[in-house]
Design a protein around this nucleic acid. Sequence first.
DNA 1: CCCTTTAAGCTTTTT
DNA 2: GCTTAAAGGG
Length: 634
Amino acid sequence: MNYTDLSNWQPSGGLILEKNALKAVIENKNTLIIAGPGAGKTELLAQKACYLLETNTCPYPKKILAISFKRDAAENLAERVERRSGKEISKRFVSKTYDSFAKQLLDNFLYGLPEKYRPDADYMIAIQNRQQNDIRQAFNLAGAVSILELSNTEYNNLLNERLIEQRLPLNEENQSGLIVKKAWDILLRGQTPDFSPALSFQMISRLAEYLIRSNPLIQKALTQTYSHVFLDEFQDTTDIQYDLLRACFHKSSSIITAVGDNKQRIMLWARAKKDVFEAFKENFSAREQRLIMNHRSAPRLVEIQKLVYSYLNDEEHDVKTSKKWGETDGLSELWLFPDAEREAEVVAEKINSFLVAENLKPRDICILVKQLPDTYGKMIINSLKEYGITARNEAVYQDFLKEDIVKLILNIASCALDKEDTESWIYLLDILKIMRGYNSSRDFEKLNLLIRETKEFLKDIYRSFQDINSKAMLTAVIWKVINFLNMSYIKGFYPQYKQGHFLDELINKLIDFIWNEYNLSNEWITSIENLKGVNSIPIMTIHKSKGLEYDTVIFIGLEDGAFWNYIKQREEDTCSFFVALSRAKRRIVFTFSQDRKVSSSRYTMQKRESIKSFYEILSRSKVVKEIDFVKDSK
DNA sequence: CCCTTTAAGCTTTTT
DNA sequence: GCTTAAAGGG
């Protein structure tokens, strides 16, 4: 392997990194990179990975470990590095989620745990929903008595909290501590006859952390394997995750680069550690580095974004916009409506003109809500239908579409229906190869046979699709695909499908969705495309939109009613407002409706009293155009 | 059976 | 804070 000389290294893709970003790429110390929206945090990590690998600063055979929260973020990062540095070199870039990192540690070194905390090797992931709550049940079996003053949810939360609030081992000095330990025992090893071992991801992280702490050799191996560690979306790190990181890499030679944004901290309610930046700087002697570019948003929108900083008591930091924008680029509007019907009418009409007159694609636009996309989006979806435009609650599809089995089956369908789709063909063949354990260089014969068989099979599927005239027939075709893949190969390759009925449910849902789309379009390729969402406008919550960007963002319902929790979480909701605002590249629209029919029967008067600071920000910016849409002006 | 009262959910991910 | 679904009372 030829490595690039340190001084000759250039960011790939013809990109020019801002001064601080280049510094952060090259500097080989623990670093906390704080950067606002659109600064290219993920891109910086990808560039840094390429730098470390290409210049051998991460010396062969050592690796880089990148940890993200979500699977698609982890995959996205890995994909960027592979695209730039090539398959060979990027083998030393390991990108995974916190949970897979923790679970892998636990599963690989189960016997490194003291016997008292060693789970059964066949433990399941604990289920916690209405029908079944493994943790509650374990506590019941352990003899815990529920507390009358607490509601069900509060009590469940309390039990979960007691399980994972501290690092292991537990303090067993008092009576309640003993019950917690008993519950742990039951969850770790089960209780005959009817409770099987089950662990939550939080418990898995706690166990992994304890494992590392009690086995210095494993910790050493870990830090020797990974010379560099990347942490994405660092502001969302929970205390449990932070403890694990600390156990793994504190006082080690591994160099950590964390990137995050304190103004996008909207996960505190889900246990994010509030002082994680300060803790990291102190515990790891990390240097703070700020990026000042906003490559995403137009100058006018950045003006508004800057005003949010002062509301968050954040020091003034300079933000520079990209040169691709003109000084006065960026549109922001506040639309006022008498009621939600009028709102739906106007929003649909405007979206239609964005698509027609401005030539935007459906995926250039995003409809954002604080919560309850179905409730807030329902009327707009219906109004858009009159223009032949589809909008959909993206949450229903987002998680579903990134499931491995769904991706695989949809790829096969695309391959079978559209012979030009080489991308799907490469993806499919790659997976089949790995699933069957074939080696590209060794199993030449087998591979050829596999290619022939698969091509034959795809032709068959193509013909089958043409004959389908009922849902039962579609179901039969999908099962033909699954049988070709082989159920036991699937479960072996994707262990997450081993448990319960998850896989069956996904397959049934997939059949429902495809059949539904087919009834609308009567064309198979279009149905698959529409299911993937290419032709529909996404409606989603602010939380789901994190990390995404759109030309035009329409936020529905800048109203007290949507921010009902504002009194309890002022700062966090202001961050939410900021996240919504900063998704937009060129245009942001906020709507307010005097009356909103949230329920099926009643209107509710909307106020903007408690969130008036949001309106102050908008009006202080002096760039927001206020438009009052009175009833029935058409 | 109907009306009133009460509880729970609402913003998340992960094998 | 507001909706929905259930449980409870007459």
